[in-house]
Structures are given as structure tokens and as C-alpha cells.
């Protein structure tokens, strides 16, 4: 098996050398084309529309009027006073962004704390058992997110399974109020996004050479030192990828806060959706979506750059 793949690699290398550099580039481009076309049409095109709309005026019943305006961006930070029409600073939307970022951040940390030992456990299993564990991790994806979130709702509600057990066993006289609170959203988000953390962590930890761990122990490192100085630095690419994969969808989460949060507080996703519905302000919705995207991109750039340097420092 290994012999065969080794010879294939050698053949490929030989063939690659024979092909001139320009042909190779053309082929790469051709192979990339389908992806580029998909990204161009379904990624850049809608983004251009969003950016354009954010600089227009809202139409009377939704839609836009073709008049240039920066009101959508001004509205994000300032509001006109109801009395004298002066602009004053308003933090309503910043608070909504703040709450979304906060919740996404806490979810990421929570998923990391739960996901790391899980991934380590799987990576330390014999190779023939790993696939079974990975299969179990991906099992929830077989069911739609909406249905899974609904199931959580049924479990934690006042007359749900947990409270049924608590009250029934006499541990509590009144049901525990979990549903429609921030912790409920937190539970739902961690549950939904945990696999996105475990899988990249596993990919990193799987490649971890356990001889290095043994070597560290031989050099009298404590267990904490092994974790901090050996395992975590080596798993860093997986940690970064996992955090990104959890943080970004967590920031725009829509179903989970709506179902489990009770709808009393707006999240970023719900706020943007509302602009295209009852609020009838498409330019503001577009501007808010772009602002959110910018915040995410900036956070990512800073994060990846920092962790990239960290990775180099640790060798």
C-alpha cells in the first residue's frame, strides 16, 4: 500500500517536471475556474449589491430609491433627536453588536474548553477506532439545526425533561427557569457549533507526535507544562481554525437566539432581518450587514496575524 502510493508520488513528480511552468499555471487556473465563477457570481455580486444599497435612500415600502445618501451609516451611531432634529450619539446598535460579539466569544471559549479534551481523546485512540468516534461527532449534522434546537427547547423548558426530573424527584419545588434566558442561548450555541471546534482540533492533534510528549515527561515537565509548552503550541493551527469556525457563525446566529432566547433582545442577525421586513429600511440593513462583516474581518486579520507570529515563535 505504502509502496504503491510512494511510486505514484514519484511518477507525479517526474511528470510535473516535464510540464513547463506556463502549462502548469494554466491548468491551475482552469481547475480554479469553477470555484472562482461560483465565488464571483454568488459571493462578489450580492456583496456589490449590498454595498450599493447601503449608500441609497430607503424606498417607501421597502426597496431603495436611487438617491445617494450616507444616512444608513450615520444612523448606526447617531440618532436625530425627536424634538430639535440635532444629531446625538446613540449606542443602541453598538450594544446589539456588543451582545452578539460577547455571546459568540463566550461560545467559542466554551466550545474550546469542551472540544479540546474530546479531540485529544479521539486522537489518542488507536487509528482503527478514530473513525467511529469522528462519525459520532458528525452524527448530529444528519438532523436539521432547527429541529435539534427545537429538541433542546423541549428538554429545558418549564415542563420539559430536566424540570420534570428535578421537580419529580423532589430536588426542586418550582421548575428551574432556563429557557428564554442568555444561558439557554449559550447552551444552544455551544451544542450547535461544538463539532466545528472538535474536527479541526482533531486534525491538528492527530498529527501530534506523542514521542514529544514522552520526551517532555522524561525532562521532568509537569503535566500542566506538557500541555502548555508542548501540546497547545503544536495544536495551535487547529485551535485557530476551530475558534474561527465557531466564532463567525456564532456572531450571525439567527435560529438559536430566536428560539431559545425568547426574542426579547435583538441579536445582530435578527436586527438586520428586521430592516428588510417591518422596518422597511433596506439601506440600513445593508449597511449593518457590511459593518458586521468588517468587524469580523478586522477581528480575523488581527487574530490570525497574532497567532501566526505565536506559531513561528514556538517553532
Amino acid at each position: 500500500m505504502t509502496d504503491l502510493s510512494a511510486s505514484t508520488v514519484a511518477d507525479n513528480l517526474a511528470r510535473a517536471r516535464r510540464i513547463s511552468e506556463s502549462t502548469a499555471r494554466r491548468r491551475r487556473l482552469q481547475l480554479l475556474m469553477p470555484a472562482l465563477i461560483v465565488i464571483g457570481i454568488f459571493g462578489l455580486f450580492p456583496l456589490t449589491i449590498t454595498a450599493t444599497y447601503s449608500f441609497l435612500s430607503p424606498g417607501t415600502y421597502g426597496g431603495v430609491r436611487w438617491e445617494f445618501s450616507t444616512d444608513a451609516y450615520v444612523q448606526f451611531l447617531f440618532q436625530r433627536d425627536i424634538f430639535d432634529d440635532t444629531l446625538s450619539f446613540s449606542d443602541s446598535y453598538l450594544r446589539i453588536i456588543g451582545r452578539s460579539v460577547g455571546l459568540a466569544f463566550v461560545t467559542t471559549i466554551g466550545a474550546l474548553i469542551l472540544g479540546f479534551p474530546t479531540a485529544y481523546f479521539i486522537a489518542s485512540k488507536p487509528p482503527n477506532q478514530r473513525n467511529l468516534w469522528l462519525f459520532l461527532i458528525t452524527l448530529p449534522f444528519w438532523t436539521n439545526l432547527l429541529i435539534r434546537t427545537y429538541a433542546i427547547l423541549l428538554i429545558i423548558r418549564d415542563e420539559g425533561l430536566i424540570n420534570f426530573a428535578l421537580v419529580g424527584s423532589g430536588l426542586r419545588s418550582t421548575p428551574l427557569n432556563i429557557l428564554y434566558t442568555d444561558p439557554a442561548v449559550f447552551i444552544g450555541l455551544i451544542y450547535s457549533y461544538l463539532p466545528f471546534m472538535v474536527l479541526p482540533l482533531y486534525a491538528s492533534l492527530e498529527k501530534l507526535d506523542f514521542k514529544l510528549v514522552e520526551a517532555a515527561y522524561d525532562l521532568y515537565a509537569t503535566r500542566l507544562q506538557v500541555l502548555r509548552r508542548v501540546i497547545i503550541p503544536l495544536a495551535r493551527p487547529g485551535i485557530v481554525a476551530g475558534c474561527i469556525l465557531v466564532f463567525i457563525p456564532g456572531l450571525g446566529a439567527y435560529i438559536t437566539p430566536t428560539l431559545l432566547g425568547g426574542g426579547k433582545k435583538l441579536m445582530m442577525g435578527n436586527m438586520i432581518a428586521e430592516q428588510f421586513g417591518a422596518s422597511r429600511n433596506w439601506p440600513f440593513g445593508s449597511a449593518a450587514a457590511l459593518i458586521l462583516m468588517t468587524v469580523v474581518m478586522l477581528a480575523l486579520v488581527v487574530y490570525v496575524r497574532n497567532s501566526g507570529q505565536g506559531g513561528r515563535r514556538h517553532g
Partner: peptide
């Protein structure tokens, strides 16, 4: 009846503040 846009804008601010 449907409200004029200025009213919708005011409602929208009340609503956002309520749910911030």
C-alpha cells in the same frame, strides 16, 4: 392603515431601544 415613513422610522427607534 400603513403609517408614513417618518412614523415607521420613529417606531423603529422605539423598537430597537426596547430590544437593545
Amino acid at each position: 392603515r400603513p403609517c408614513p415613513q417618518e412614523t415607521v422610522d420613529l417606531y423603529n427607534r422605539i423598537w430597537t431601544q426596547l430590544k437593545q
